[in-house]
Design a protein around this nucleic acid. Sequence first.
DNA 1: ATAAGTAGAGTAGCATTGCTACGCATGAAG
DNA 2: CTTCATGCGTAGCAATGCTACTCTACTTAT
Lengths: 113, 113
Amino acid sequence: MRAETLKGHLDGILLAVLEPEPRHGYAIMEALRDRSAGQVDLPTGTIYPALHRLERTGLVRASWSTVGGRRRRVYELTSAGRRALETERSTWRDFSAAVTALLQPMPLAVSPQ
Amino acid sequence: MRAETLKGHLDGILLAVLEPEPRHGYAIMEALRDRSAGQVDLPTGTIYPALHRLERTGLVRASWSTVGGRRRRVYELTSAGRRALETERSTWRDFSAAVTALLQPMPLAVSPQ
DNA sequence: ATAAGTAGAGTAGCATTGCTACGCATGAAG
DNA sequence: CTTCATGCGTAGCAATGCTACTCTACTTAT
């Protein structure tokens, strides 16, 4: 996946990966890598700020936990987050349909003779 | 179309709309509006800088023309632009497939019992 | 006439957002 | 004891679309 292409669609993806169960940042990165067959492999400098952003806007809720001497910050969707995810999904459907249509090779407009 | 969602995919769209025939900026805006049923309605502050960018990077070539006392800057694809358009199309296919998959509601991973 | 609307190009500066390149800590494996 | 995986974090950069504006010229109402 080329960098930067994600722009604007990362939040939806993060919400989606948190939908079935709460996860911590590192696990989110792994889940994305697995589910996209390595196509989406985000650096920590992308993932953590994005999670903080989602937390700040109230779409996820975070809490610390410690597992095997290592601390983790576990994120879970809020109800606002679940709603936002649905919105993202429908936005994505519209958006991707529009872009797909526009990228389609277009025949020359026929001017009436 | 929500603003900002386009991020990173505008160039490909512009190249696509220029593929069948050269157009000037204003005509590009109209073509996009028509072809997307009003969904993609870009302000001039988006379109002109983007065209300049494409010109600067050699993907389009521009020339002035005057029609009915009004000057127009007409853009056409270069061969590099045609190649870039193909790349954009395949990038888009990969990207949209990946995002669609990731946004899909995911079942909880089954842990072996 | 003149005001409003359409056609047409442009810029400055902002906001968002993902990325690079770091720092720091703990535990396991060689 | 060094390297690797796990795990969180930030500062600052770069790209890019948008808002809000300027300027010109023709066209159509009032």
